[in-house]
């Protein structure tokens, strides 16, 4: 019975993502069509002549009312049509799909790295206030949020590539000497493993480590700060006192009682962390010439390739909504109180 309730709540959560999706579609539409200036000129690109502009105008339906245009936009979206990129001539959707795994691989590895450091650091700092661990944690969190990601990346390149020579050149996902592993998932690390090609795996990881560290340093601060804060609060709560007064062992109190409760606020802030990470991802991709959707968007921005930029914004937003949904599901599974208050 309890699991049926959970399923129902999960269903409701998924439905709650719908308004966000609608909002995203409206905003991207407004950004492309309803702004001052002639969208046809934007979409045609700087090199277009009057005829091609007129053609684009017709193609986009710009000679019709806004409502009709919105209808056309929706129909195109439903067909997965995000328009053509003027710089590459390819459909935007195809390029995004090709480049997405690179961005996701980088983001996930970075989040994993930072969570592996931040959560233990936060717990240690909270259980030992005013010791060196605590001071370290506080320093890392304050310094971490002050670091511009692109600057961290450049520093790391300077130190580990130029000075020490430990890291390969910051040029994409794989050194030109290697062939990409056979395409299965699009994640080079996993594909290399599946192909049993350890040499390529090593090369992939070597390329990945600096950008992932850069991005990870950026997310470290908010995660560690949240973990420390919520652990401190939970450790001071009445029910931890009860558990201690009942003589439960330190481990039991710390993990079963304190940590699981402290995790809840951390999960809710993950949404914000994802938002920052996806943004910072763009900057990191530029620094390391990482062939993800972020660098695609930057290249498109430079040549005023609007269809590509808007396609990128839409893709990122949908990715973000999906991540938030995952967070909601995780929260629902961890907290029994969810859904009771409605």
């Amino acid at each position: 019975m309890a699991s049926a309730t959970k399923l129902r709540i999960l269903g409701q959560r998924s439905l709650q993502a719908l308004p966000a999706l609608v909002g995203i579609i409206i905003v991207t539409f407004v950004l492309t069509r309803a702004l001052p200036g002639d969208p046809a000129v934007y979409f045609a690109g700087p090199a277009a002549d009057a005829r091609s502009i007129a053609e684009i105008r017709k193609q986009l339906g710009l000679d019709r009312t806004l409502i009709e245009q919105f209808g056309i936009y929706l129909r195109q979206l439903a067909q997965g049509d995000l328009g053509q990129s003027i710089s590459t001539g390819q459909p935007v959707i195809k390029e995004l799909v090709n480049r997405l795994p690179a961005s996701i691989e980088l983001t996930l590895v970075a989040l994993l790295l930072s969570a592996l450091v931040a959560i233990p650091l936060g717990i240690l700092a909270a259980t030992r206030p005013d010791t060196w661990v605590d001071h370290l944690c506080r320093f890392v969190t304050t310094a971490g949020v002050s670091l511009p990601t692109f600057f961290t990346g450049i520093l790391l390149v300077y130190v580990f590539y130029y000075l020490l020579g430990w890291a390969p050149a910051p040029m994409g996902r794989l050194n030109v000497m290697y062939l990409s592993p056979p395409h299965v998932t699009g994640f080079f690390t996993i594909d290399a493993l599946l192909a049993g090609d350890l040499e390529t795996l090593r090369a992939t990881l070597a390329q990945l480590i600096l950008p992932a560290t850069t991005l990870g340093l950026f997310t470290l601060a908010p995660l560690a700060r949240m973990t420390r804060g919520s652990m401190l609060q939970v450790l001071g709560s009445d029910f931890v006192r009860t558990a201690r007064a009942a003589g439960l062992s330190g481990r039991k109190v710390l993990f079963t009682y304190a940590f699981r409760n402290a995790l809840l606020p951390v999960i809710t802030t993950l949404g914000m962390v994802f938002s920052f990470t996806l943004g910072a991802n763009v900057l990191v991709e530029k620094v390391f010439a990482w062939p993800g959707i972020g660098s695609y968007a930057i290249e498109a921005l430079v040549v005023s390739d609007y269809a590509a930029v808007q396609g990128f914004v839409l893709a990122m937003a949908i990715l973000f909504v999906a991540l938030n949904l995952v967070i909601d599901v995780a929260y629902t599974l961890v907290d029994p109180r969810v859904g009771i208050e409605g």
Binding site: L31, L35, F276, V309
Partner: peptide, 23 residues
Amino acid sequence: RLCDTIMAFPLFVLAMGIVAALG
């Protein structure tokens, strides 16, 4: 609802889109 819509985007990405569209 307005806030939810803004927050539904990764914020830096939204800023990119806005600047690209506004000029």
